[in-house]
């Protein structure tokens, strides 16, 4: 699976290190609809990549396949050089079993558009449940880690509240804390501000900005917030119709977009 010309151009740094995430000729069909048509994409250790594009361009599908919520129809996705949806047996790739998926999934975290907090657990338990039962931390360690993180997102006073008692912005901040305490190597953000009232968007974006500065986690952000994408991303990828139309440094993408489609897409955002 060769890299496209554009990708070669965009990766200026010498590419000796293995990419953290690699998509090779990945396709995805839902019934007859082909939402991804041979995607090649690499994300480096610690890199922050924003995926932008019109709805239906396949950007959410890209991260959902990495979170193992959606199975690719073709191609190979690798994490740390190891195929995610396949197992290597000798030279052959066979479909991965749940055990293999679970092993690789431990390096991936995700924040959803609709938060998906567990409504029957307190905020603290939402954040400690997986560290205790998946990572095997002691209750004390998990609590410490969770309280620390909840303080960071400004919700240290809501430990005993239930999700339904929080605003959308607060829920999303809990969801971010819940994913981060698992110490993933790559965090996926799926339009995390799209379901929020406009006045609550800022607080959530700020938390992600702070997080991006502090950690060496890689981040893949599907977003419609162009200023945010520009701010936070090392690289912006513009998708159209299941393919990468253009990618590059945020400044290049937003200041001097090359393709007509990207120019059109951006002008619609700037005009509103």
């Amino acid at each position: 699976m060769g890299m496209t010309e554009k990708q070669l151009k965009s990766s200026n740094k010498p590419d000796k290190e293995m990419p953290l995430v690699q998509y090779e000729n990945v396709t995805k069909k839902f019934g007859d609809v082909e939402v991804l048509k041979g995607l090649d994409l690499e994300i480096k250790q610690g890199e922050k990549v924003a995926l932008i594009g019109p709805s239906g361009s396949g950007k959410t599908t890209i991260i959902r396949m990495l979170m193992t919520l959606e199975k690719p129809s073709g191609g190979v996705i690798s994490l740390n050089g190891e195929p995610l949806w396949h197992k290597k047996i000798g030279d052959k790739l066979v479909p991965a079993d749940e055990k293999h998926l679970r092993k690789l999934r431990s390096d991936i975290g995700m924040v959803f558009q609709h938060f998906n907090l567990f409504p029957h657990m307190t905020i603290l338990r939402n954040v400690t449940e997986a560290p205790i039962h998946v990572l095997g931390l002691s209750k004390e360690e998990a609590n410490e880690r969770a309280v620390d993180m909840l303080n960071k997102v400004g919700l240290g006073d809501k430990l005993d509240a239930y999700p339904e008692q929080l605003s959308g912005g607060q829920k999303q901040r809990v969801a971010i804390a819940r994913a981060v305490v698992m110490h993933p190597k790559v965090m996926l953000f799926d339009e995390v501000t799209s379901a929020l009232d406009p006045e609550l968007v800022g607080e959530v974006l700020q938390v992600i900005r702070d997080l991006a500065k502090e950690t060496d986690m890689a981040m893949i952000l599907v977003t419609h917030e162009m200023d945010f994408a520009r701010d936070i991303a090392d690289r912006v990828v513009f998708l159209h119709n299941g393919q990468i139309e253009e990618e590059g440094h945020p400044e290049d993408i937003f200041e001097t977009p090359e393709s007509e489609r990207l120019q059109g897409f951006l002008s619609r955002f700037l005009n509103t």
Partner: peptide, 22 residues
């Protein structure tokens, strides 16, 4: 909701944990 299954998956719960905890 479907999102609860997906969140459980994203948190890497096992199948049994997903059933009995979520």
């Amino acid at each position: 909701p479907k999102g609860q299954w997906e969140a459980a998956r994203a948190m890497n719960f096992s199948k049994i944990q997903t059933w009995f905890r979520v």
